[in-house]
Design a binder for these strands. Structure first.
Length: 462
RNA sequence: UCCUCCUUAGCUCAGUUGGUUAGAGCAUCUGACUGUUAAUCAGAGGGUCGCUAGUUCAAGUCUAGCAGGGGGAGCCA
């Protein structure tokens, strides 16, 4: 007899037929004569109700069928006489793969706080919430590849170990095989990285963008999707030390093409979730955020607002709000300013462009005004910046002079400069924080609850 | 890293101006119930009050330090 997933079984019309399911017990209840077992195998948020006539099973077997236990059930699928489920499985045979002692199993039938579940991240995938989040996370990863493949993009694997910190996106984690207690020293007393594994100082990547640019200037449309590492001491519900980032890079795209792509891409992903994960979204909508599904629909249906940094400053200055941080042309926007624009003033996602060059990265293309660059940030309600991108500076001389202005060591990125020397092309790209997308789509409030095993300052457990 | 709040039973929390034996709900265990839906009902067990030091006749309660966690800020995705 072939095993069937709960997801298929619940849809099955083949009542009267025998099936085998395997999964983990959520609850068992009942009386002397009959037991009801809610069984879940993670294939769907719903459980199959297994009905066991107590007389048909040895006492020891049913005693082990507690919350958390892993069991196999063979039984006849029947229409359920009671409300709550369309079908149920009339058990003929039950085998316990692994019991879960009720007194010590940490997950109970009742709800747990998300903070507590973070402490038992090895068991939290067994909860409804994390089942839903992890299935949605999978669906979003799949949809990312689907979208790009359908639109002629190629998936590039950017290196995870890097020898440069050219983007300056943040503090890095060093990668070394040197003995930390007695590293080889140079005559001046500093560590001699020439003796290290790669013969130079290396770190974990903070961005695959520069490598993606190299590939875009050959394959035209590319994207990366991989882990990214930032050693910043960030303790917020929106930051991780290890997270996943999606970075498309497109030759022959200007900043407007870039915005069009970003908007279309994000809407595709949200729509994909609504079309393919509605069971899980309905659960999250009910348990955590009553406006979740409405908010997702609004994203898909409405055009994003596009305005320049300069226009945003004007709106903020004339808003009549009192700010903790003053608004002035030339300073970066603070969270309170971004939130006002997205949540109060417009009430929908906003794409801000043309920031002052001083507050943006060296590789962004300068506008003819000499003051601003073709940057774009996509700001979302609740989570703030979900995408950061720009048109890239493709002119060799302009890029080089900006690199020199900022004292970026040329020897580290000679290869990046060479792409502008040989067959340069206008191009653009952006980075989408995958976990921030999942935060938005699931309605979860803390980024540690949308990745299976979060890495944050002082926490690398599991 | 800064600001702020929190830490009491397995979980979620209450605990008065410092006062004698620290409570509740859920979970667990025992019993009842012929179809339950986070089943219900009755009973029972369960505590180094985060750790350390101090103030006091007396500390869950006040003070300091440390640890862990939440929220806000910065950095950013």
């Amino acid at each position: 007899m072939q095993q069937i997933k709960v997801r298929e079984l619940l849809k099955s019309k083949e009542t009267g037929k025998e099936f085998m399911v395997k999964g983990w017990v959520r609850t068992r209840r009942g009386n002397k004569n009959i037991n009801f077992i809610a069984l879940n195998d993670g294939s769907i948020i719903h459980n199959i109700q297994v009905v066991a006539e107590v007389a048909n099973f040895p006492e020891e077997t049913l005693k082990l069928v507690n919350t958390g236990a892993c069991i196999m059930v063979k039984g006849i699928l029947v229409e359920s006489p009671a409300a709550g489920q369309p079908v149920e499985l009339q058990a003929k045979e039950i085998h316990v793969y692994g019991s879960a002692e009720p007194e010590t199993y940490p997950l109970q039938k009742k709800g747990h706080s998300l903070e507590f579940l973070r402490e038992i991240a090895h068991l939290r995938p067994r909860t409804n919430t994390f089942g839903a989040v992890l299935r949605i996370r999978h669906a979003m990863a799949f949809a990312v590849h689907q979208y790009f493949n359908d639109n002629g993009f190629y998936y590039i694997h950017a290196p995870i170990i890097t020898g440069s910190d050219a983007e300056g996106a943040g503090a890095m984690f060093r990668v070394t095989t040197l003995d930390a207690s007695k590293p080889p020293l140079k005559p001046d007393g500093t560590v001699d990285f020439a003796e290290d594994f790669f013969g130079k100082e290396t770190n974990l990547t903070v961005s695959g963008q520069l490598e993606a640019e190299l590939a875009a200037l050959a394959l035209s449309l590319v994207y990366t999707f991989g882990p990214t590492f930032r050693a910043e001491n960030s303790n917020t519900p929106r930051h991780l030390a290890e997270f996943w980032m999606i970075e498309p890079e497109m030759a022959f795209f200007d900043i407007n093409d870039n915005m069009d792509l970003a908007e279309d891409f994000v809407k595709y992903l949200v729509k994909y979730a609504l079309d393919n994960c509605l069971d899980d979204l309905e659960f999250l909508n009910k348990m955590y955020d009553n406006e979740l599904i409405d908010r997702l629909r609004q994203i898909v249906e409405n055009k994003f607002i596009r305005l320049t940094y300069t226009e945003a400053i004007t709106i903020l200055k004339s808003s009549g709000q009192t700010w903790e941080f003053p608004v002035d042309w030339g300073t970066d926007l603070q969270s309170e300013h971004e939130r006002y624009l997205v949540e109060k003033h417009f009430g929908k996602p906003v794409i801000l462009t043309d920031y002052p060059k001083e507050i943006k990265a060296f590789y962004m293309k300068q506008n003819s005004d000499g003051k601003t660059v073709r940057a774009m940030d996509v700001l979302f309600p609740k989570i703030g910046e979900i995408i950061g991108g720009s048109q890239r500076e493709e002119n060799y001389d302009s890029l080089l002079s900006r690199i020199r202005e900022l004292n970026i060591p040329e020897k580290d990125i000679w290869w990046y400069l060479e792409t502008r020397k040989f067959g340069t092309a206008p191009h653009s790209g952006f980075g989408l924080g995958f976990e921030r997308l999942i935060l938005f789509v699931t309605g979860m409030a803390n980024i540690r609850d949308v990745i299976p095993f979060p890495r944050t300052p002082k926490n690398a457990e599991f």
